[in-house]
Design a protein around this nucleic acid. Structure first.
Length: 410
RNA sequence: GUGGCCGUAGUGUAACGGUAACAUGGAAGCCUGUGGAGCUUCAGUCCCGGGUUCAACUCCCGGCGGUCGCCCCA
């Protein structure tokens, strides 16, 4: 019986896992500079927690666990709900703001496609307690610094920022609150439609005045419009976010909507310059969630980076972090009688180095062949003749140069 | 949820309505203390189920999986 990997999952072999670890490590380095402290949440939660902030369509995509008694559990499809739950536990006594980071696996029951799996990995941060645009800017700066640390340039990746309030204000004036979601959904789809189709759909919804507004690329151009209070507030917040972040990487994009989720103000996503891949990360402000989860009203902002698309893009850019899974030493034992001596040397070397020892009883030729196949840097050849003189041979596997080394020098 | 394409040793490929081969990788020998080459040997394959047929890896249907889209994307 041969088993197949479950749909939408991925096995990581040492090289891939090692690259992944490096990405996580770099992320942790960046977040700790901003004093985001790492947390972890359960991989599964009560279904109600995970589904409460989403519509029926998203609830469909939650991985359910088999029902136990009356309790319904599901695998987390994101971190935000869990961290919000966690935050509420300590909300009263904790000094604000609270800044947390995380990295871990998430699950969504969806059809896999490029950059999207059923089990995937996200790196993220959440910031609770500050309503200042500075908080959003700090979250965005983590993204920018992370890309810089990966040697990705502002020509290759952009963080596109918008503020929910701007379009919300404008569209509410045009169509009222009832049709707001529908209008936002259409604008979110704009890139996938032709100009004519989009214009026709706008006509249907009675929002064709929005078309020229969506062409705007500079924040100042919005100032000329006669905006309502909500929109003006959004513009002011956005202006500050842009002021506080790296203007090479971060730019205003009025068409960024980010679904119809829980976002209330600043929203952003990082995209590859060609726009070929799905977004590299996303986030924004969600000032209503804590209260709706039973906490006291509290502003919050955060973001998450998916490693799948990131890895695809870094591969394309040939900018994957370098990793080395090869051992420093391979210990070749010519006969079984030298194994005790071989193990002694291995034990000493392993205090500082990665060491592999022969365990296949192969001929010396085969052993060296293997050592070079796994890219070992040096081989230590242990045989009875040398051992009688308390020596071993150390061979540099790249140059082929050898020297006799005394046993007690290890 | 849905559409297109795809599914043969670990990997990459080939052939064929009569149960499969080549390359590479693996183990081993030539070579009982010196690798990356060569030669030789060994192990290893038709995704699963049903149908058609004397006979199915091959044709048909379904499933599973891969891949790229659509819906959606917290």
């Amino acid at each position: 019986m041969k088993f197949q990997r479950p749909k939408g999952t991925k096995d990581l072999f040492p090289e891939e896992r090692s690259i992944h670890n490096k990405l996580v490590q770099i992320f942790q380095k960046v977040t700790s500079r901003y004093n985001f402290n790492e947390i972890e949440t359960p991989a599964f939660e009560h279904f109600d927690l995970l589904s409460s902030k989403s519509g029926p369509e998203l609830a469909e995509q939650i991985f359910m666990l088999k029902k136990r008694g009356d309790e319904e559990f599901a695998l987390r499809p994101e971190y935000t709900a869990s961290t919000a739950r966690m935050f509420i536990d300590i909300q009263k006594e904790a000094p604000k703001p609270i800044k947390w980071s995380y990295s871990g696996r998430l699950w969504r029951y969806e059809a896999p496609q490029k950059g999207r799996l059923r089990e995937f990995y996200q790196l993220g941060v959440e910031l609770f307690g500050s309503k200042s645009p500075l908080a959003d800017a700090e979250v965005i700066s983590v993204i920018v610094d992370f890309f810089k640390e990966l040697k990705v340039t502002s020509k290759e990746v952009k963080v596109k920022v918008n503020n929910r309030k701007i379009l919300q204000g404008i569209l509410t004036e045009m169509v009222g609150e009832k049709k707001l979601d529908e209008a936002l959904r259409l604008i979110d789809k704009k890139k996938k439609l032709t100009k004519a189709q989009f214009a026709a759909d706008c006509e249907l919804l009675n929002i064709k005045e929005i078309i020229p507004i969506l062409e705007i690329t500079k924040l100042e151009e919005l100032d000329g419009l006669n905006l309502n209070e909500l929109s003006t507030e959004g513009v002011e917040e956005l202006r500050k976010v842009l002021d506080f972040t790296d203007n090479k990487f971060v730019e205003f994009d009025v068409s960024i909507i980010r679904g119809l989720g829980y976002y209330t103000g600043t929203i952003f996503e990082a995209v590859d310059a060609n726009g070929k891949l799905r977004s590299l990360c996303g986030g924004g402000r969600y000032d209503d969630m804590i209260e709706s989860f039973g906490g006291e009203k509290c502003p919050a902002t955060g973001m998450a980076i998916g490693t799948e698309t990131l890895t695809l893009y870094l591969t394309e850019l040939e900018r994957l972090p370098e990793v080395d899974t090869a051992p420093d030493y391979f210990i070749a034992a010519i006969s079984e009688s030298v194994l005790p001596a071989a193990l002694k040397i291995a034990k000493k070397l392993r205090k500082k180095h990665s060491v592999e020892i022969e365990m296949m009883k192969r001929s010396l030729g085969k052993q060296l062949n293997y050592a070079s196949a796994i890219n070992a840097k040096k081989a230590i050849i242990i045989g009875e003749k040398d051992l009688a003189e308390k020596k071993v041979t150390v061979r540099d596997l790249e140059s082929g140069k050898e020297e006799k080394v005394k046993l007690d020098s290890f």
